[in-house]
Amino acid sequence: MMRVSFTVNGKDHEVAAPPMKRLLDVLRDDLALTGVKEGCGEGECGACTVVMDGLLVLSCLVPICQVEGKHVTTIEGLAASGHLHTVQKAFLENGGAQCGICTPGMILSAAYYLDHPDEARDIREALAGNQCRCTGYTRIFESIKAASS
């Protein structure tokens, strides 16, 4: 077991955990932040996407020993002071969420893309790491277009 200090959604946390415990499990089990989802456990589906030190990461592939001193944002931290983030609002209004299981990761990736439009050639590349089995992506693209305008 090791002790790791880091912030999640602006709050300081210290957890005691095996060093290779996945950030995903720490968030869900230790901090009860269940908005982060596990879809595959091998870094393919994107459901466990969170933001760490400003970058998108897959929390199933981040061992907690590498989170010391880092700043993590999850879907629960996106709606600041009770107001939905523009992207959340756009997903709600434009049918961007269906079953909802990919939605937290998808929204974090979408928000990242809107903040860093130069890091992908288009929406399709920006979201290629977030798999959705319900929407066919059309409404997700519509949501992001709405959020960006």
């Binding site: 982060v36 959340q88 909802g100």
Partner: peptide, 14 residues
């Protein structure tokens, strides 16, 4: 979507 708010905020309970 009726349960959409919970879904976009990550608060739906699976």
């Amino acid at each position: 979507r009726k349960e959409g708010f919970l879904k976009v905020t990550g608060h739906s309970v699976y």
